[in-house]
Structure formats: C-alpha cells, structure tokens
Amino acid sequence: MLNFRLSVLLFIHAIYALTAKFLALWRRQHQREPLPLDAPRSKIPRHLAIVFDLDSTRHDKIEEESLFKSVYNSIAWCEAAGIEKLTLYDNQGVLRNGSALVRDHLSHLHPEIDSSESELEYPLTPPHSDDCDSRSISPDVDIRVDLHTITLNTRPPVPSKRRSVARKRRGKDTPKGPPSLQIKIISRQSSKGTLAAAARSMAARRHKLQSILRDPTPQDFCISIEDLNLLLEGEEGFTSPDLMLLHSLKPPIAPVPPPELLGFPPWQIRLTEISYFPTPILGLGPCSGGPQALTLDERTFRAALDEFSGAQMRLGK
C-alpha cells in the first residue's frame, strides 16, 4: 500500500515540476521590465543586505569569480541608486576570507579615498534597564562584543575629535567624494554566536561584580531588548537592513526551491523585507555540480528595489 502511495506521490511531483516549468516559461515571457536604477521610487532602502547562497560542495574558481563579480556590480548599482549601506553575506564565509579583494577593488574605484578596514566592532556598553539590576553596575567594566564584521568605507572619513585638526588644515579643499556607501562584510560568525558572546560578556561582568561586592543575596540578572539592541546594533554595530536580496549562485531548476536565510544574523532581520527572484533553468534534469554559477544581474537588483518601494510597513498596527 505504501509503495502504491509513494508511486502516486512521485507522479504528483512530476506533474508539479512540469507545471512549474510551464509557469516559469510563461512568467519569463510576460514579466515587466523593472525601473532603471536611478528612477525615482516612492522609497529606496537605506541599508541593503545581499545574501549569496554558495554551493557547499563546490568552492571552485568559477563560483568565486561569479561571487566577486556580483559583489563589484552590486557596489556600483548601490552607488547609482543612492543606497547608503551595503551588507554582504555568504553562507560559506568566502567573502569574509576574500575581503582584501573587495578593498582592492574599492581603492581602484575611488583612489582619492582611503578604504578603511576595521575588523572588530566594539559598540558602547549599554545602559542597564531601570526595573532591576541598576544598583550593581560599575561604569568601569565595559562589555565588549566582537561582531565579526569587516567595514569598508567608501565615504570620506567621519570627522572625529582626533581628525578635526587634519580636516581644518585641509579646509575647503576637501575633495568631493563619490556617493557615500558603507560596506560591511559579515559571515556566519556574526550570527547567533554574537548573542552567546554578549551573554558571556555580561555573565563575566556580573560575576566580577558579585565577587567584588560579596553580596550574599544578589539580585537576578536582567536585561532589556533595548540593552541587547544597543550592544548588537549600537552606533558602531551592525544595524538591521531595510531590504535583503537573496541570490543563489546555484542554478535552480523549476520549481525553484523556496528562499532560506542561510544563517544570516537573526537579531537584525526583524522588519527586513526579503526579496528573492530566482531564475530557473528550464532544463529537464537537476543542474547541480555543473560549470555554471549565476552572477547577480542588474535586472534582479532593480526588481528588488521596485518590490521594496511598493512594500507596506504597518509595525503591528
């Protein structure tokens, strides 16, 4: 009986695959051309994240070339569209390991500006919530969480106290920079592990305080969403993207598999719009392990911007 059911199920799958192929073909012929990159849209994302899905069994030159080509193109499109922040993520950590390539690309692109790179992000210590725990906080003990992000700046250096002298000296001759874009490269290390790192730091701080104060009845440890948010998204932290574009370098066949987030940091995707426009290969068999790797194309990028500009944001109301 089970064999019979399984045969019927396989037959349903065959029909499903066939229907999906026809639908994909029909959609391809009837799809609307997305607006140009710099077209006026009702809103554009200030912060875009692109998540690349790489084949875990592959790691070859062709895939790496497609990945970096997609990244370089995306940087140009972001600048053209006026996006301020671009976060790049891939599920195998290839971008993080090859961040020097992206930095080199930026310095070729904008030789007039230093592409600064910083490995570690140490946001400020969050103030503790008022409802509990406030009595035992010492401002001397800082909480530090390594968010494992690499920041590449194509914008002119931010004026800080240290740099203000140099800025004054340069005066009005400060060169007009290209459209400002901040790029962050993150990997699986910036994901769930950062919450564990935050917990470790807070536990260590509390333990130290308890041993200093030798309080026999210490209050329970409390933390609020705002505290944790400041730690993970603080001024220098990694903020939530407005839009996330998922792109698979593996050529999918129809029916295309549903999107997955591939280990992207969970804290930062609360209200992020998710865009996914896979282009199925309409062949007959699976294409895994083939020589192709799909480079992200401009059309998909523009379609994601179009979709975002039409998205409604109701914030629970």
Partner: peptide, 10 residues
Amino acid sequence: MTTAVQSAVR
C-alpha cells in the same frame, strides 16, 4: 531572544 540570553546568563 532577550529572555533566552537573560536565562542563559542566570
């Protein structure tokens, strides 16, 4: 997530 972090620290 915040409650989970809090419980893990406790």
